[in-house]
Amino acid sequence: MSKSPAPPPAEPAPTDPESLSFEDALAELETIVRRLEGGEVRLDQAVGAYERGVALKRACERKLAEARLRVERISVGEDGAARVESAGDGPDGAA
């Protein structure tokens, strides 16, 4: 991916990978890989960085695997409350 947002700090605060957005998780994973490949990591950090990378990769994969098209037709009342009128699983479910 050519698009890479600002990389996370060199010593990332251990945010739960699952709570990150896909985009942020991917960007952090990319940073870790680059640092490992570039030899910028000390031995005592390398294993931690690797484990973090594996967790990020799993989170990304899960987010990709979970994706499912779900279409809901909603109506919004005067008070702004939304109500699902009908739901479908695919492009043809909404028609």
């Binding site: 994706a67 499912r68 098209l69 779900r70 279409v71 809901e72 037709r73 909603i74 109506s75 919004v76 939304a82 695919g90 492009p91 043809d92 909404a94 028609a95």
Partner: peptide
Amino acid sequence: RDILHRLADRFPVRVLLI
């Protein structure tokens, strides 16, 4: 139909239609 098909092809997500 075009929009939902293309979304399904690329990256299916939750779609709310008004």
